[in-house]
């Protein structure tokens, strides 16, 4: 069994989480090869074959060409699995490769299952097992689901080239907006989520943060609604935090949010929904309405 792993480069660097692909291949018990659009300084610490296409020539985002580069590596390597990470690069490219290969695709795999793969559904609240029909099988892996594995060694490079041009023009990266408090240094964070209900209720969260001597954070919907500044957002597209205490108020726990706070020392979640995915990472789950519980907690702590 063989897995072709699709690594990721940004700004000329191999993204660290590319090593999770090796962790997955090891669980699968598959031989590996990697394909990478990057450059020689971005090669992984890995003794196997790396099909390297020059990012200077093909660009870091050029899906029309990247899908054909992956296809070219598939033709040479004849893998059973073509494995991406479930990231903005992976979920963009994988379906294009699947279309080209006429292959089944299973997205956001979190575990191996009997005859198939386990993946989340219903906003991470449930799991499904799906069985792909046909080969090769295209997979994307949920970030953090498979522990990173650094195989070590120096790759045997194979140059990879295709002709033609892409139809999307990549104009460049735009850096993250960083305004307001640096939450990564906070020891206590009280974060507001959709369960807060309305913007007018936000002071209740700020008051709890004040009593605890902490900072206020937010989940994505709060920022998207314009209730709080983007700088307050905790999660994959916001800040990754690890305070001593994290209090999640009315946050259901989308994977993007969990990835940004699950390393906190102690996690308290307040949520009406006992089955909310935040319960997976919480040390204490308080099953209650935020607007009833939080003011009561603040009042008691203030005494």
């Amino acid at each position: 069994m063989k897995a072709l792993l699709v690594g990721e480069c940004r700004d000329g660097k191999l993204l660290e989480y590319s090593y999770e692909l090796f962790g997955f291949a090891s669980q699968l018990g598959a031989e590996t090869a990697m394909v990478l659009v990057g450059n020689e300084t971005a090669l992984p610490s890995y003794g196997g074959t790396v099909y390297l296409a020059d990012a200077g020539k093909y660009g870091e985002y050029n899906p029309d060409l990247h899908k054909r580069l992956v296809q070219a590596a598939v033709e040479r390597e004849k893998p059973d699995y073509v494995v991406f990470l479930h990231t903005s690069y992976g979920w963009d490219l994988a379906p294009r490769v699947a279309a080209l290969l006429k292959a089944p695709q299973v997205s956001e795999v979190v575990a191996l299952a009997e005859g198939g793969f386990e993946r989340p559904c219903c906003s991470q609240k449930m799991r499904q097992v799906v069985k792909p029909v046909g080969a090769p099988v295209v997979l994307t892996l949920q970030g953090g689901a498979f522990p990173a594995l650094v195989p070590g060694g120096t790759p045997q490079q194979q140059a990879l080239d295709v002709d033609g041009e892409g139809r999307t023009e990549f104009l460049g990266y735009e850096a993250a907006v960083r305004k307001g408090v640096d939450l990564t240094r906070a020891e206590i964070i009280v974060s507001a989520g959709r369960g807060v209900g309305k913007k007018e209720n936000l002071p209740v969260i700020a008051e709890l943060a004040k009593v605890l001597g902490g900072e206020v954070g937010a989940s994505r919907p709060i920022v998207d609604s314009g209730w709080m500044e983007a700088g307050a957002q905790v999660g994959v597209t916001g800040q990754t935090v690890s305070p001593k205490l994290y209090v999640a108020c009315g946050i259901s726990g989308a994977i993007q949010h969990l990835a940004g706070m699950k390393k906190s020392g102690f996690i308290v979640a307040i949520n009406k929904d006992k089955d909310a995915p935040i319960g997976e990472v919480a040390d204490v789950l308080v099953v209650a309405d935020v607007m009833q519980f939080v003011p009561a907690l603040t009042a008691k702590l203030a005494k």
Binding site: Y61, F170, R178
Partner: peptide
């Protein structure tokens, strides 16, 4: 993209 970065296309 991840980390609050955006790609302009």
């Amino acid at each position: 993209l991840e980390g609050g970065v955006k790609g302009v296309v």
